Simulated scan of single mutants.
Amino acid sequence: MEFYGYHGVLEQEKKVGQPFIICVEMYLDLAPAGMADDLSQTVNYAEAYQEIKKIVQEQRFDLIEALAHAIAILVLSRYDIGKVRVIVDKPLAPLPGGSLAARVEIEREKKDACKLGLLKPGQ
Rank of each mutant, 00 (worst) to 15 (best):
K83T: 14
L63P: 10
I64Q: 01
I64E: 07
L67I: 02
I52F: 07
Q50M: 09
I106K: 03
Y79F: 03
E105V: 12
A36S: 12
R103M: 07
D89Q: 13
A33G: 10
E58L: 04
I87M: 13
F61D: 13
E65Y: 01
L100Q: 09
L92F: 07
L30R: 11
D37H: 03
D62K: 09
A46C: 13
L28F: 13
D37R: 00
E47K: 10
L95H: 06
M35D: 13
L28H: 07
I81T: 04
A101I: 08
I81P: 06
V24D: 07
G34Q: 00
E25G: 15
E58N: 11
D29T: 14
I71R: 07
I52S: 03
V84D: 06
A48Y: 04
C23I: 02
R78M: 10
D38L: 11
A93D: 05
I55A: 06
G98H: 04
P91R: 02
M26S: 15
F61L: 10
I106Q: 06
A66D: 01
L95T: 15
K53H: 06
V104M: 06
I22L: 10
A70E: 09
M26V: 15
E25I: 14
E105A: 09
A66K: 01
R78V: 06
L63I: 14
E25C: 11
K83F: 07
M26F: 01
F61N: 09
L74Q: 13
